[in-house]
């Protein structure tokens, strides 16, 4: 297709099957990690903004029934979902008069929801760490393999000139470049998401006590 054979893609045309396999794996890693990045950026962004909105409403309105009604507008907010779980448990208590037992049950329900919420937020994120850690090594493997073949070709042609060695090495280095291209965004996204999820988790732990208190007060 092209007469000039200097582009990166044209380099791929001459690569061996192992290097090509490595490149396909890295491409798959990259596609998956970007899919996770896109999804998580949307999810975590929504969870944070809606939690903030819900919290403002929660402190504004003292009636928990009203607050519960408002949670419908914050379906993606983590705090709203935790409150919702606590409220459902509070309604399920029925005629239970023992305040201590009621508090325990509400607290347990809220803790369960906090765990569930954290799990949901963390879902797929460890894959980013895996890509970030392994992709450079996979790329390096492809490069080592390519350079090995390049040196073998030196033996075949019996010439160690730069002209003989350089093209093979250039082809092989594409694998390392691909590995780094897959790993760098994954590592950046993993660090960012972990920090954001930790922040949401802290908020959940801080405010779950508040929710329990407000629901127990309603019982009293």
């Amino acid at each position: 297709m092209f007469d000039s054979k200097t582009g990166v893609l044209s380099l791929l045309a001459d690569t061996g099957p192992v290097v090509l396999f490595v490149l396909v794996i890295l491409l798959l890693f990259s596609v998956l990690s970007w899919a996770i990045i896109i999804m998580k950026a949307a999810n975590i962004g929504k969870a944070r903004s809606e939690s903030r909105g819900f919290l403002d409403y929660f402190f504004e309105v003292s009636n928990i029934d009203k607050v519960f009604g408002e949670t419908e507008n914050y379906r993606n907010g983590s705090l709203a979902r935790v409150f919702r779980a606590g409220y459902i448990e509070y309604r399920a208590l029925g005629d239970l008069k023992d305040a201590r037992q009621s508090e325990e049950r509400i607290a347990r329900a809220i803790r369960r929801e906090v765990n569930e919420e954290t799990k949901n937020l963390l879902r797929y994120v460890p894959f980013l760490a895996t890509v970030g850690n392994t992709a450079p090594f996979i790329g390096l493997f492809g490069t080592v393999w390519g350079i090995m073949n390049s040196f073998l070709s030196i033996g075949v042609t019996q010439s160690a000139s730069l002209a003989t060695v350089a093209p093979g090495i250039a082809e092989a280095l594409v694998a390392t470049a691909a590995g780094l291209a897959a790993a760098i965004p994954a590592v950046i996204a993993f660090n960012y998401f972990t920090q954001q999820i930790n922040s949401i988790e802290r908020d959940l732990e801080d405010f779950s006590g508040e929710f329990v208190k407000s629901l127990v007060n309603e019982l009293g």
């Binding site: 491409l27 990259s30 596609v31 998956l32 970007w34 899919a35 996770i36 896109i38 999804m39 949307a42 999810n43 949901n120 879902r123 797929y124």
Partner: peptide, 16 residues
């Protein structure tokens, strides 16, 4: 969540 992931996956494939 799975549906969202599939959408994100499609977007990612398109970007690549």
């Amino acid at each position: 969540l799975d549906r969202r992931f599939l959408t994100a996956f499609a977007v990612s494939v398109f970007l690549h």
